[in-house]
């Protein structure tokens, strides 16, 4: 059986080969591991809330405006990423690429505001070294931000491959997988938004 390459035309492009189906399933399982990873970081964060030593507290520093902008940008990027996959399903490479580029730009915008926010906190005397609480804060948010950065780099690679090789079952699979990753980061952000920022502001 050369089942690795058998094409199943009844499936969407990204599911057509056995290899693609395996890779997508594996990626879902990887996301399961990522949930365990972020779950641990969240647990750490909640355990360490209130352990401020002599440093400032979250309610003194968190500002709704910046956080809302970040949230809005990132949620929109999930939406554009969804449209990109929709375009891919319609067979439009151009649509896919344009919406991916938009997604990336939004991702970069998110990072810009997040880094700005971090710099602001550091100026106010809250850094990784300040207290257990801020260590946990920066590690949780930093891990998420690092994932977003990685996602942008990864998406760039896929865009180059789409431009070079066109839309085929391989590039479609890759595009689909990065879209899963991107949505996942959005879900994590929703927990950060509520668990870290909203709770932090009321407490």
């Amino acid at each position: 059986m050369s089942h690795d390459e058998a094409i199943d035309p009844n499936q969407p492009l990204e599911f057509q080969t056995e290899k693609s189906r395996l890779n997508i399933l594996g990626f879902w399982i990887f996301l399961g591991a990522e949930i365990a990873l972020f779950g641990t970081l969240f647990a750490t964060y909640f355990v360490l809330t209130g352990r401020l030593a002599d440093g400032p507290g979250p309610s003194e520093l968190f500002e709704l405006r910046g956080v809302l902008i970040e949230t809005f940008i990132l949620l929109t990027s999930s939406f554009t990423c969804g449209i990109a996959i929709h375009e891919m399903r319609r067979g439009s490479r151009k649509g896919l690429m344009i919406w991916f580029i938009l997604t990336m730009l939004l991702g970069l915008g998110f990072l810009y505001f997040e880094i700005e926010e971090f710099i602001h906190y550091i100026h106010e005397g809250a850094s990784l070294q300040t207290s257990a609480f801020w260590s946990a804060f920066f590690t949780l948010l930093g891990t998420h931000g690092a994932h977003v950065s990685l996602g942008i780099g990864w998406m760039t690679m896929i865009l180059i491959q789409l431009a070079r090789n066109g839309l085929n079952s391989t590039t479609a699979r890759k595009a689909f997988i990065i879209s899963l990753y991107w949505h996942f980061l959005d879900v994590v952000w929703i927990f950060i938004f509520t668990g870290v920022y909203l709770l932090g502001m009321v407490m």
């Binding site: 750490t44 352990r51 609480f133």
Partner: peptide, 29 residues
């Protein structure tokens, strides 16, 4: 394993980058 990954990373941050997850001072636990 992701739990170990995080635990090791946190201790690395403590030891090399001055974080306070597990230290006796500054709220560590």
């Amino acid at each position: 394993f992701p739990v170990l990954t995080v635990a090791l990373a946190l201790m690395t941050l403590d030891r090399i980058f001055g974080a306070h997850f597990f230290t006796l001072m500054d709220g560590g636990m």
